[in-house]
């Protein structure tokens, strides 16, 4: 589904990603964990073409996307929810949602997607005409994820969806992700500092430290590894 093969991304002299190799199976949830500055956000930005890797190869849906422009990758079925959600506060809630599906030709299907997102996150349906700037942090994150789902992606990249949210809201979002995966076979790559809640819904986990993969295993195994937890995951 998604193969990241020996990818190195640099900012000036800094190696943000150093020969990172990660494989993601179709229909799985994969957690990418690690401390601040470990390279998690850079990994997602490299996958969706916002930054170009210095070397290595990225394949998604069986196609090499290493040099593909971001918008084309998005139209290929990859949705990326950036850190903080990337909600456009100058637009209304519904405009944000519609924007997520605009590139898809089927008008009826776009309307159906909007109904589904409204069912998934009822607060978004109630606040359709309001400016997105009026939403709370949790609602913004719902809007960001809902907007990503509007395009009916095959692969969803999520950057720290729990950042700054109350535990209950985080739990709800994790629940929605697990539910979506089991209903639609969506593949999810979940970047989190909150390792425990991310691993609780994931199949596999990768731990990054200073741009390198330092551990990769089944989510359950990672959760049980006390040494790893203390060294890299902080719980």
């Amino acid at each position: 589904m998604l193969e990241i093969d020996a990818v190195t991304t640099t900012y000036g002299a800094v190696r943000a990603l150093d020969e990172v190799t990660i494989g993601v199976d179709e229909g799985s949830i994969t957690a990418v964990l690690g401390a601040n500055g470990a390279g998690k956000t850079t990994l997602l930005r490299t996958i969706s073409g916002l930054v170009r890797p210095r070397s290595g190869r990225i394949t998604a849906f069986g196609r090499d996307i290493t040099r593909t422009p971001t918008d084309e990758i998005a139209r290929g079925g990859l949705a990326h929810v950036p850190e903080g959600g990337g909600v456009i506060t100058e637009l209304t809630v519904e405009e944000n949602l519609r924007l997520g599906a605009l590139w898809r030709r089927d008008r009826a299907d776009r309307a159906a997607a909007l109904r589904e997102v409204h069912e998934l996150f009822p607060p978004l349906a109630e606040r359709g005409d309001r400016a997105a700037s009026t939403l709370s942090g949790g609602e913004r994150q719902m809007l960001a994820i809902g907007r990503a789902l509007m395009s009916r992606p095959r692969l969803l990249l999520l950057d720290e969806p729990s950042l700054g949210l109350a535990p209950l809201v985080t739990e709800r979002i994790m629940h929605v992700l697990r539910d979506l995966r089991s209903r639609t076979g969506l593949t999810v790559v979940l970047v989190e500092q909150n390792a425990r809640s991310a691993l609780s819904i994931s199949d596999r986990g990768f731990v990054l430290a200073l741009g390198r993969v330092v551990a990769s295993d089944d989510a359950g195994t990672l959760l049980a590894d006390d040494q790893l937890r203390h060294a890299y995951l902080g719980f």
Partner: peptide, 24 residues
């Protein structure tokens, strides 16, 4: 219009617009 929505998105947040498939 959808075109106008794309244009506004590209103006306000070009990077986000790209991630949503807009040809900025």
């Amino acid at each position: 219009t959808p075109l106008g929505l794309r244009m506004r998105a590209a103006a306000f947040r070009p990077e986000v617009a790209k991630m949503l498939g807009v040809r900025v």
